[in-house]
Design a protein around this nucleic acid. Structure first.
Lengths: 221, 221
DNA sequence: AACACTATGATTGTCTAGCAAGTACACATG
DNA sequence: CATGTGTACTTGCTAGACAATCATAGTGTT
């Protein structure tokens, strides 16, 4: 256990809280966030709020044009596909390389056990462990930049999730078994097989999410 | 040709100029950049300079801790390896997928022709076309997020380049032929072969650069 | 009634000014 | 030599202000 104390700057604290609220759906997608508004809710000066907003824009959680109010990014079906393809490119190469050295990340095994343990619980409870599983794979490469890139992708994935209410389209048992397959092929030293298993796993999630979002946006039109 | 006029914000303009100067080695690595200094050189207020610096920190061209002066990031040999491994993960998957559809990006062919045309010129003149070649491969996937991630990596690669003075370690002819091999294997529909060729190509560049930088830092100690 | 133009309000971009808090480095002290 | 202290420099944040820009509603014209 590390005992490091983190002295958050005010801006950092605001960024963290806004991020959390966006992820939790507390601030809905498409919501406008003016600088003055943020400043008053957190009781800080406008430049401080501005800095926080700009950082979230850099994280691509918010978007805004020049002189226009920042809005929480709304992810369409095409964005979801873009994100998931990017994930697939990164992760399939990762599992390929892990398979060539037959190194199964312990953290991934643990995360998948967590998923199996929650099969009878509501589907939303496996979102965390699911992300942990995939993060563990990428982090096992021990490459700072790859991990950082992947984390920024996962941020957007989390944003997708909040848009999908009926998360019952997630079949916990199926996900756990697909993960297990990937790990087995890594252990077996089968790069191609592992990459294919991962690709199919992500492809299914991708199309489920994309379809769900397309349907949701049809209702609003 | 696009005739788009770019209404740059002041901050954007400063960011652009600072980035250019850093890439060109005009501002050496390790140089301290105080907010007041930047503000006075560009004749803007300190908050404006601050914002520019913060954006470059987000781009990881500068680094700074709380209450400490921002410095131009100095890339050590280990960072270079980290960057090049990340490149390899991304790009080898890219060429694999391109090979499965046998789609050879025209822009990549063009960029490599440019390299061949400059074999007799100084080695530094191929840096641009070389980056264009690799960018063309990634962009051919038509995935915004992957392209964005790759571009941020290339920014750091460019930073490495400025550290390596004796760029004569680049053999233009060899690079052009390695690129050609990659393209051939893509055209032949040989994913594994293309990925291997690319991996070796980047591995060589990686070790040349890393060795050069290790040597340079030994001299300074 | 439909359309173009204008005027108003809201919002952002940038500035000035300044205080508080933290860091770094030289200096003095034990 | 190690430890404290102090001063100068730098950053974090605030307050308030003004111009430029965008959105919207209202006005006038056809």
């Amino acid at each position: 256990m590390s005992h490091r104390v983190t002295a958050l700057s005010i801006i950092d604290a605001i960024v963290q809280d806004l991020r959390r609220r966006i992820y939790e759906g507390d601030i809905a997608q498409g919501t406008a966030l003016t600088e003055a508004e943020v400043a008053s809710t957190y009781e800080v000066a406008r430049p401080t709020a501005k800095a926080a907003i700009e950082r979230l824009v850099a994280d691509s959680l918010l978007e805004r044009g020049a002189h226009k109010t920042a809005r929480v990014k709304t992810l369409g079906a095409d964005s979801v596909r873009d994100i998931y393809f990017a994930r697939a490119y990164l992760e399939s190469e990762v599992v390929r390389r892990l398979a060539t050295t037959k190194s199964v990340p312990a953290a991934a095994v643990h995360a998948n056990a967590e998923i199996s343990a929650r099969i009878s619980l509501p589907a939303t409870t496996i979102i965390g462990p699911d992300m942990d599983f995939h993060t563990a794979l990428v982090d096992a490469m021990d490459n700072t930049r790859t991990s950082a890139m992947y984390r920024s992708l996962l941020g957007e994935v989390r944003l997708c999730m909040t848009r999908v209410q009926s998360l019952e389209l997630l079949d916990s048992a199926k996900i756990a078994s697909e993960h297990a397959t990937i790990l087995e092929r890594i252990a077996a030293g089968d790069p191609e097989g592992a990459a294919i298993a991962l690709d199919e796993h992500l492809a299914q999630a991708r199309e489920l999410l994309a379809a769900e979002i397309e349907q949701a946006s049809d209702l609003n039109s």
